[in-house]
C-alpha cells in the first residue's frame, strides 16, 4: 500500500513541474507591459519601474524562470501587490475557510446525492425515479452563482432566516458556521448533487442486476441488508472516483460563490485579485489550488486502492 502511494507521489512530480510552468506562463499572456497593467492608470513611471523590478520583469525570461523555480522550492510564491503580503502566507491563512466550506459541501453532496440516487434506483421506473431524474438534470444545468443569489433573495431578503454573507469558523461557533456556511455550501453542492445522483442511480441499477445480489436475496436476507451491505459497498467505488472531480468543481465554484456570500476564503481572495489585476496573487493562487487538488486526488486514488484491491494489483489508478 505504502509503495503504491509512493509511486503515485513520484508520478505527480513531472505533472507538477508542467503545471507550475503553465502558471508561470500566464503572466506572459498579458498583452503589452504587465507592469503598466498592474500599476493602473494613475501610476507614475517610477512606480511602474518599481513593480517591474519587484517582479523581475526587467530580467531575461530564462532568468525569471530560474528564480521562479528557486523561489518555489523555498515555498515562496511572490508578494501580493494588493495586500503587500507574501502570496503563500495569504493563501495559507485563508485555506481553512475554503476547506471547511468545501468539506461541508462535499458531505452534503455525498449524503444527498447517494441517497436520492439509491432511492431512484430502488423505485426504478416509478414517479419517484422520474422526479429524481428530472431534478438531478435541472441541478446540473443551473449556474451555481445564480443559485446562490436566488437563495439570498429567498432565505435572507424574503424569509429573513439566514444572513446574506459572512463567515464564522466552526471551531468558534458551530451554529454560526451552519448559519453562514449553509447557503454557500448548498450553492456549490447543488450541481454536484445532480451529477452524483445520476451516477449513483445508474451504478445501483447495474449492481442490483448482478448475480451476487440475486444470491443474497435467494438466501432469504432482508432487502435492507441486501441493499445496505451487498449493494452499497459496490456502489461506493464509482462514487469515490468522482470525488476528485467533485472537489475540483467545488474549488472552481468557490471563487464566485465566496465572492457572492463575502466569505473570506481563497475564492474571494482570488476574485479580488482578478478585479485588481494582482498577477502574483492570481498566479500563486492557481498554482496553490492545482497542487492542492492533485494532492487530494492522490489521497482519493490511494483510498480507491483500499476499497478496491484490484487497483493495487495491476497498478492502474
Amino acid at each position: 500500500m505504502a509503495r503504491y502511494a509512493l509511486k503515485r507521489l513520484l508520478q505527480m512530480i513531472p505533472l507538477l513541474l508542467l503545471v507550475s510552468l503553465i502558471s508561470f506562463g500566464l503572466i506572459k499572456l498579458v498583452p503589452g507591459d504587465p507592469a503598466v497593467v498592474m500599476g493602473g492608470s494613475n501610476a507614475t513611471p517610477a512606480e511602474i519601474d518599481a513593480i517591474r523590478r519587484n517582479l523581475g520583469l526587467d530580467q531575461p525570461v530564462w532568468q525569471q524562470l530560474l528564480s521562479f523555480y528557486a523561489n518555489l522550492a523555498r515555498g515562496d510564491l511572490g508578494r501580493s501587490l494588493l495586500l503587500g503580503q507574501p502570496v503563500a502566507e495569504a493563501l495559507i491563512e485563508r485555506a481553512p475557510v475554503t476547506l471547511w466550506i468545501s468539506l461541508y459541501s462535499l458531505i452534503l453532496t455525498v449524503v444527498v446525492g447517494m441517497a436520492t440516487g439509491i432511492v431512484a434506483a430502488l423505485r426504478h421506473n416509478t414517479w419517484v425515479d422520474q422526479v429524481v431524474s428530472v431534478v438531478a438534470l435541472i441541478g446540473v444545468s443551473l449556474p451555481n452563482f445564480w443559485l446562490g443569489l436566488m437563495m439570498i433573495v429567498l432565505f435572507s431578503v424574503w424569509l429573513g432566516w439566514l444572513p446574506t454573507g459572512g463567515y464564522v469558523a466552526p471551531s468558534a461557533d458551530v451554529v454560526g458556521f451552519l448559519r453562514t456556511a449553509t447557503m454557500p455550501a448548498l450553492a456549490l453542492a447543488f450541481l454536484q448533487i445532480g451529477l452524483l445522483t445520476r451516477i449513483t442511480r445508474s451504478t445501483m441499477l447495474d449492481v442490483l442486476g448482478q448475480d451476487y445480489i440475486r444470491t443474497a436475496r435467494a438466501k432469504g436476507l432482508p432487502e435492507t441488508t441486501v441493499v445496505l451491505k451487498h449493494a452499497l459497498a459496490n456502489v461506493m467505488i464509482p462514487v469515490i472516483t468522482v470525488i476528485g472531480l467533485i472537489l475540483s468543481v467545488l474549488l472552481s465554484g468557490s471563487i464566485i460563490v465566496e465572492t457572492i456570500f463575502s466569505v473570506p476564503g481563497i475564492g474571494s481572495l482570488l476574485g479580488n485579485a482578478i478585479l485588481r489585476r494582482d498577477y502574483p496573487m492570481i498566479q500563486g493562487g492557481l498554482l496553490f489550488v492545482a497542487a492542492g487538488l492533485m494532492l487530494l486526488n492522490l489521497i482519493v486514488d490511494v483510498l480507491y486502492g483500499v476499497f478496491d484491491p484490484r487497483v493495487r494489483v495491476d497498478g492502474r489508478g
Binding site: 475540483s248 482578478i274 492557481l286
Partner: peptide, 13 residues
C-alpha cells in the same frame, strides 16, 4: 487545474 479556475486565470491575464 479546475476548469473554470484556469479559464478565469487566462482571461484575467
Amino acid at each position: 487545474f479546475p476548469s473554470v479556475l484556469l479559464a478565469i486565470g487566462i482571461a484575467a491575464a
